[in-house]
Amino acid sequence: MRPPGSVLLRAQGLGVGYERPLLQGLDLQLVAGRVTTLLGPNGAGKSTVLRALGEPRLRLAGQLWQAPGLRLGHLAQAAEGQAELPLCGRELLALTGASADGLPPWLADCLDARLDRLSGGQLQYLRFWSIAAAPFDVLCLDEPGNNLDARGLAALRAWLHTPPVGQAVVLVTHDDSLVDAARQTVIRIPS
């Protein structure tokens, strides 16, 4: 658990991409207890920024500082690998050391079902929870609202409004309902 308000990660003039830069000159500071939201059009490089925080090969320019011993959790945009896999929800949480405490009741009842027997929304919220409730210091959440119905989005919104005090969150989303400029640091990435 990091002290609330402490800086966990700082990037200056960050350039990210694969063979050529997708995005350049990004300044970013992630603080425990605060959500930083990246907004921008498709293809602007938002997801690549999240990946680059944990993968040095994607960082093409700039400087990145991380707090010592920083643990980075990453929820990828697409749910892959769950099809035809004999794994239940409880086991998914155990893989990241996530606690089931605090799960919405409509999901807590599904923990013993196979992941590929859950609906898209149930699976997405459980994937989100397996990262959000795990002992990571920085949570990189790439479109966590994908496939969620109104109930799931409400639960996610409530969580984003009061994130754990010891964790910093960096959120990529196209869903305006998840963005709260008063509570979050919002960075707009141009196309």
Partner: peptide
């Protein structure tokens, strides 16, 4: 744990 995690959370 690492092998299963790599399958369901490849980004980790």
């Amino acid at each position: 744990r690492a092998m299963l995690r790599a399958r369901v959370h490849p980004a980790l």
